[in-house]
């Protein structure tokens, strides 16, 4: 095992977690998305970091 200083890595995980949670909560509350909601749910849950950001850029409907 790699000897990892968790104090150093923790912020990374925290940020990823915030992105994940905020994207998921927004997805649940939003009225409509570009494309089916369940696809975005999969994207957010399974694609670490990139998933939530893709959702924010392309998933949210602007009109």
């Amino acid at each position: 095992m790699i000897d990892i200083n968790w104090a150093l890595v923790a912020p990374l995980l925290v940020i990823q977690f915030i992105l994940f949670i905020v994207a998921l909560i927004d997805l649940i509350r939003i009225h409509e998305t570009n494309g089916p909601k369940w696809v975005w749910a999969i994207v957010i849950i399974f694609l670490n970091t990139i998933g939530p950001i893709c959702y924010f850029i392309f998933g949210r409907k602007t009109s």
Binding site: I2, D3, I4, L8, V9, P11, L12, I15, Q16, I18, L19, V22, A23, D26, T49, P52, I53, F56, R60, T62
Partner: peptide
């Protein structure tokens, strides 16, 4: 639309990736 949340978080992630991965490169 959470832009003021996710955009800074994305840049923070990008910013801390290199110092961390380079530091642990050998181990990785």
């Amino acid at each position: 639309s959470f832009k003021f949340l996710w955009m800074p978080l994305l840049f923070i992630l990008l910013g801390i990736t290199d110092p961390l991965t380079n530091y642990y490169m050998e181990d990785i």
